[in-house]
Design a protein around this nucleic acid. Structure first.
Lengths: 284, 284
DNA sequence: TATTATTACGTTAGGCGTAAAGATT
DNA sequence: AATCTTTACGCCTAACGTAATAATA
């Protein structure tokens, strides 16, 4: 029968042209290669080489055999990769969310409930969330609205409400409530990695420019030192010092007050309990 | 690295369910299989089995691995087959002809000129001859007319003329010449394996019925004992005794007097000499 | 003379089977 | 008790490298 490590020697020889170079490259002796080539010929059952006294070449059939050998070697490597990623997928719960906030409570809960599994998450656009959950590319999705698909369970888990933060002396500070369109035209501070909030702002406030900060420290520094409006939500808990100097004004748009929904394939009943635990926490 | 014979053991185990059955089936010991399974797991780098104290199962990843293993094994076998047929093709000259007669002189000539090669021939319909030569599926084709294709050389090689043979007392025996349409309605003896002559007769003589004889002995016996017309040509040399009792009348249709043409890919210049030798013989 | 493939030979590592142990049904 | 996997152990093959041979450029 064919043998992959022998075929590897064959392709190496095809690349290098002489047995001695090949031997050097593969850290084995020439006699071993001579033998291997004979064995390969045996396995294929037809002559693959032209043998001179002092030289050995692949004949036309040999070149064909090398083609097949390369393909087989590639496929074998690929099989290993595929099986490995299959194994990885089997032991990781991939969560795709439209926004970061729900992950703050969801991910720890998953780790706790599935200690054997690796928990992994990505922020992606809303259509991808739906697509990937239905296609089985990820286990759990988080959307800012409910959907109705027959293979997919969809449950509300947590509510997030948007606020604008402006310095107390800012012209908007006197407002008791705001809409995003009322903010349109004001340049704003924005974090990166905020999922669909990003698209929402750009859609509702086309006249504004956004100063996107990747670094949390830079964001907070600017929030302190500038008078640019920024955003926070009921779920953000790490901005007390900034808020002291700023006023928090609720944003009234319905798109800015969302109920996140968790979606997952209906057959994955193990996620039922997660839902419940999340809703319990939300009520607190 | 993956090893095909190990994978074969894996798939056998997948089929049979227990190591001991597999060991029996493959004529090896159980311990060997235990080891092999470990090595395969090692090669894939991920767990493939659930091990009970007294039992070993493939886990989900293992089942995937088996899928890939089967594919790899199939591909490997296939590669061997492909290389073998490639080798065979490289060492055979396949001739496709529309009729048997030209082969009688062509095949011996090929054997003589290419003693290393295997000569192989098939009777096929005219369109297939052209198609297969142009597609490189066969090396040489024989047609009853010339063609003009730019990748294909086409040369006249030999002429064949059709005769009707009837008993001397037959009503057609007085004719000096005939056409196939004049024969239409007469039932005729016919050999099988006569290529395009078969189609020609059926086309030109739709009212006739043909008594096709596969066996040459049966054909000759019937030619002697019946008064059914039969055919011969200038190239047929083995019917003297029959002909003594019958009259040979030339058939005048232009389709019944053909000049065979040999076609082959222009790049195969080694067949030039064959052409010439054939034409030389034809003149004799 | 330097390079290369092949042959011959001796050594050794690893692969296989036997036997035994451990565990399950 | 029978079946099955795993572990332990010893044998023996077969795979490898070294050294020698032969041939070429």
């Amino acid at each position: 029968m064919l043998n992959l490590s022998e075929l590897e020697q064959l392709t190496a020889f095809a690349d290098l042209g002489t047995l001695s170079k090949t031997a050097e490259e593969l850290h084995i002796s020439q006699p071993t290669l001579t033998r291997t080539m004979k064995q390969i010929e045996e396995a294929f059952g037809v002559p693959l080489f032209e043998r001179g006294k002092n030289r050995i070449y692949l004949n036309e059939t040999g070149l064909k055999a090398v083609e097949y050998a390369r393909k087989l070697l590639y496929d074998a490597e690929n099989a290993v990769r595929q099986v490995q990623t299959f194994h990885a997928r089997l032991h990781t719960i991939l969560v795709e969310s439209c926004a970061p906030a729900p992950l703050w409570t969801l991910l720890p809960l998953l780790s706790e409930n599935f200690p054997e599994q690796t928990i992994s998450s990505r922020l992606v656009e809303i259509p991808s969330v739906i697509e990937d959950v239905t296609a089985g590319k990820c286990e759990i999705g988080i959307l800012p609205f409910p959907i109705n698909e027959n293979t997919v369970a969809c449950r509300p888990i947590i509510r997030e409400e948007l606020f604008v933060c402006v310095p107390k002396e800012h012209e908007l500070a006197k407002k008791q409530k705001l809409t995003l369109s009322a903010l349109n035209g004001f340049n704003c501070l924005l974090r990166s990695e905020i999922g669909f909030w990003n698209e929402l702002c750009r859609e509702k406030m086309p006249a504004s420019r956004f100063l996107v900060q990747t670094d949390e420290f830079a964001f907070e520094e600017l929030a302190r030192e500038s008078s640019l409006p920024c955003f926070t939500t009921n779920l953000a808990e790490n901005m007390y010092d900034i808020l002291e100097e700023r006023k928090r004004i609720p944003v009234m748009d319905k798109e800015a007050n969302v109920t996140y929904h968790m979606i997952y394939k209906k057959q994955k009943k193990e996620y039922h309990t997660i839902e419940e635990q999340l809703r319990k926490k939300d009520r607190q």
